[in-house]
Design a protein around this nucleic acid. Structure first.
Lengths: 219, 219
DNA sequence: AACACGCCAACGGTTGACAGTAGATTGTCA
DNA sequence: TGACAATCTACTGTCAACCGTTGGCGTGTT
């Protein structure tokens, strides 16, 4: 039959909790829920049309991702990032991604890796004329891919735990300022460094890339 | 009054959820709940004397910490680590701690930092003749302190998210094997490197320390 | 052996309730 | 009027009981 509903591609049906999670994450990292905003469980469960219990599970996760801050008596509010925190987040991100770059350099067969990365960059190039959101999305996808290709699940997971904070930093610092650092060339530098197999160079390239990004954000 | 129950020192009363979280974490990282063990919500909520809802919140968190693995249909089981995963975990840990070491080197006033670290090492030395658990505990405390002293909350948080996995690695590889790498000298090396202010040296020292630890664990 | 049926375990999710508590509101009195 | 006490309100923490689904398993039938 042709009238299939959804599960064609890897689009597995998500649990309500996961849907709520995505919805809230998006709302926060898009600024729809402003930093500092106080969250009320009943309000949210009502908006999202889910029960309080299910919602609370999602909230716990967002809290651990650093998107929510816990106040006294379990009061939650949208986290507010200052310049130092943004720098701190990017320092950790840099540490993780430089590990990724180093790991990839040590792989015997890097052809597959570099070709995946080049595809990701091409996607960025294709999005270069599109919306700011699209550019950010494709940039993050490149960096996520970098981590994924290492095959180090822990590394990928740590990076993804940070992703929300990264998005918040970008949103907080202003999207225009963020994209200004996402040149296609800079990313090719990274791929070339990995291709060369020089772990030190690859690490250095990533560190500079992240340093530039962070400096740009909090400029 | 002398008959106080608990809240004397910073021991704030924890919510049931937090208590359950600690209890489960301990049970898992101590091996009381063996790797691969299938968890049943009602069973646990029953054992811990808490409601299923409250328990589920704790489980979600453990899942995110990588202590639990999700199977089909939400089935949870205690995660099982193989040698590669242990190496991966320690690679990420090394990346985080080397960032910590580098950051500390850049601090203008390192006297306070190094003295805190030396205290932590003395605690290790004091525990050196004690139980294996005590030695592990003081070793982890040293490394956690390393991260905390940077003042980078994100870094500390990332490290702590990994702590459960680290403990599991140690338990899984055998506690005796783990402590064999925890010499007091090696830790003084780290402090001295930081003291010297040489970021590259400090980073290198940490990387070697972690490399040795990981190699020892999966030997 | 293969299939069908029915039972059961376990999870995802819901509802409704209740206690505790910090803050806001209102009432009271000097 | 201003300060203080009593009260109310808004939330969170936690619980108990329940429904609908799904897949595993044993049993029986052919």
């Amino acid at each position: 039959m042709a009238g299939l509903t959804a599960p064609l591609l890897g689009l597995e049906k998500k649990s309500l909790r996961e849907q709520a999670l995505s919805a809230l994450r998006t709302a926060i990292t898009s600024g729809e829920l402003e930093p500092g905003r106080h969250l009320v469980e009943t309000e949210l469960s009502d908006m999202l049309q889910i029960s309080r219990g299910t919602l609370r599970e999602a909230l716990r996760q967002l809290e651990q991702e650093g998107l929510l801050a816990a106040g006294p008596r379990g009061r939650l509010s949208v986290r507010h990032l200052d310049a130092k925190e943004i720098r701190d987040i990017f320092a950790v991100r840099a540490a993780l991604e430089s590990l990724a770059a180093r790991s990839l350099c040590e792989l015997p067969d890097r052809a597959h890796v570099t070709s995946s990365l080049r595809s990701a960059i091409e996607a960025m190039a294709a999005a270069a004329e599109g919306s700011l959101e699209g550019r950010i999305e494709s940039d993050l996808e490149f960096h996520r891919t970098l981590c994924r290709l290492t095959g180090n699940e822990t590394l990928l997971h740590s990076w993804e735990s940070l992703e929300g904070s990264i998005r918040m930093s970008i949103m907080y610092a202003g999207v225009e300022r963020a994209v200004s650092n996402m040149s296609v060339d800079r990313h090719y530098d990274i791929v070339r460094a990995i291709e060369s197999g020089d772990a030190t160079l690859a690490r250095q390239t990533i560190l500079e890339h992240m340093d530039g990004a962070a400096a740009n954000l909090v400029a």
